[in-house]
Design a protein around this nucleic acid. Structure first.
Lengths: 207, 207, 207, 207
DNA sequence: GATGAATGAGTCTTCATTCAT
DNA sequence: TATGAATGAAGACTCATTCAT
């Protein structure tokens, strides 16, 4: 699954990167506020700080912006997560740490994650597949942490259970954003992490 | 939170009901395929089996269709769930039954639930609030089942834990549709129910 | 210039007359409020007290309603004017009386006259010609009154002057409605009649 | 009463002016032929020489075009009138000159004035108030000319009479367009001016 | 490279009119 | 005769995209 090439009329790679970062930042703000379809390219250009003509020097179509946004968000989540996971604990504690790290990263990038959750479905087929693969990769990251616990004999789970637990953990992290209207009203982030970690671990720590 | 009144030029309530059912059915098919924004009112009319003029005899705007769709889906989920829950078991078994029932209902109405998940954000503010309330109500239903177990002394959970568990159960049910590309590839519905029920219950059955 | 035949599916002439009167009354109210083009046939039917289907039993098209309205207004103005003119004065006094009568009739039928002034241009060609002819006839009525004064030697005017004076009188009467925002703020009807009569007569009473 | 701001997406003020002039010219032609409501925005765009998209770069709604038209006509009438009034006569002669000037200007801008007369009622409330104010201003201009004669002792009129005479003169000028089907058949412009001037002045020159 | 005016296909919505009951 | 549901042509307006400067 290769990174899709977004066409640009401009040669200077440095400039391309800079302009696209401006676009992505602007797009996240606008998409969060009004969604992908209700946001116009003109608005994105304006919020980015340049003209509509310039916008189209760096992308081929409006959908490219959405793709750029989703791709950037995944990269940022991955990167931040990896940074947080560089801890030297093992076993159950490493799983606890991973859950905590994941939840915190998602909380950190709340708006971005929410946008991705709500709008990625509007991606063209191929781009969607690429983004889905990233989600699968991320699930695999969590899976590995759990599997390590199993390998160490701290958990006793089948492969199926490992995979499902990973999905659950990821979705419970996302839930923090897409059910914010309920969960963020009832719990602080710390409480949420505490409670969810407990429920998850008890679930896995069966005989 | 009152049911929003969708305007109609037609007087015959029977007919309104019938036509709107046609519209909703058509809309779900189309929204699932291309999303709310990419579906035109003309397409909905055509798929419904009548003209664009007739469509607008039964609604005030395109957004009304989305509202009608979301409202109908919730009603259907609720109704089916209530029907399945009329079992005479108690305690943990009733919770198991509820989880199974919920998951089966969601599986049954997969397309509908997916559409609602992806498009309800496009509802106008007020309608969104109404739909959100329905989601809250449904969460409360699950909460009650769990609370009953607590009251019977079969579970030992704080209110916060009860509420969170209810959210988790609901989201895990929805997950079956919005992560279908992963979970439905790895598990049959029965396996999924079995495994999730286990994970949830173990999580709740702590000392 | 023949009265245009407005088609009807109904035979009973009595009923046609009754229904059309209902329609005209309703239409005047609505046209005054929002103009011919912004008034829908449905609204006219509703205001008339019957269904849209019934409306079309008594006319062939929306424009027919406008024609019916204009025609009725002219007939009413004419009739009322004739009634008021049945006075047995002669010469200048009869002209004064005519002016007063005309102004009072127009004041009486203000809304109707205004509607006719503003909307008759939307009549189809042929109907417009018919209505224009009625206006010409009415001008002729005033002309005759002036001409009588000339014939009696009380005024000394050329045919051209007689005709122009008639137009002026009529337009000054209409002015009472279509410049109401100015003239009805500055003058009472009596003042207006008094002042205009004076200006007109002084104009005609030259050596 | 401020000039209403018509929105435009284009920045270049020069261009806005040019394009709007094209639009106004096109609109007058079309409105005269078929009225405001029967003229489509597409037709206006085409007659203006650009696309429908471009039209909407320079206005916010169809009604804006009507407003632009009415505003432009008033400005043109005012300007032309002021130019013609720069004569160095005094007293009754200046009034005669003013009447002649007004009538000639109206004749010059016949189509425009007629359009404004027939369509301005379709303006939205606020814009209508603005246009009415312009009409009031113009009436005041005539009033001043008459009042000067009174001040010089050449006419002996009350304020009420002065105001009413001004209204009459203006309406008689407009009459030349909105009763063209009658008056322009019977009189040449010169005759019309000659006769009306006479009738008006005799009316005012009472003892 | 940057700009922004121009384009026109596409969208929602209205409403005069018809016709089966 | 009366009704009102059905129709679809037509209209106002939007917005992604292009291209000359």
């Amino acid at each position: 699954m290769k990174k899709k090439k977004v066409p640009s009329m401009v040669k200077d790679q440095q400039l391309i990167k800079k302009r696209r970062e401006q676009m992505i930042k602007a797009a996240v703000i606008l998409f969060k506020e009004k969604g992908f379809h209700r946001t116009t390219t003109r608005e994105i250009a304006k919020e980015s700080g340049f003209s509509i003509g310039t916008l189209y020097e760096y992308i081929g179509s409006k959908e490219d912006i959405l793709y750029l946004v989703c791709d950037a968000i995944y990269d940022e989540v991955s990167e931040k997560l990896k940074k947080r996971l560089k801890q030297d604990v093992e076993g159950i504690d490493s799983l606890k740490a991973a859950i905590g790290a994941l939840f915190k990263v998602i909380d950190d990038l709340q708006d971005e994650v929410l946008v991705m959750y709500q709008e990625s479905k509007s991606l063209p087929k191929e781009a969607l597949a690429y983004v889905l693969q990233k989600e699968i990769d991320m699930t695999a990251m969590i899976e590995h942490v759990i599997q390590d616990c199993v390998n160490l004999g701290h958990l006793n789970l089948s492969d199926q259970e490992v995979k499902l637990a990973a999905h659950n953990i990821l979705v419970q992290a996302h839930m923090w954003t897409f059910r914010r209207w309920a969960v963020q009203k009832s719990y602080s982030l710390e409480e949420y992490i505490e409670l969810q970690t407990q429920l998850i671990l008890e679930g896995l720590l069966k005989e």
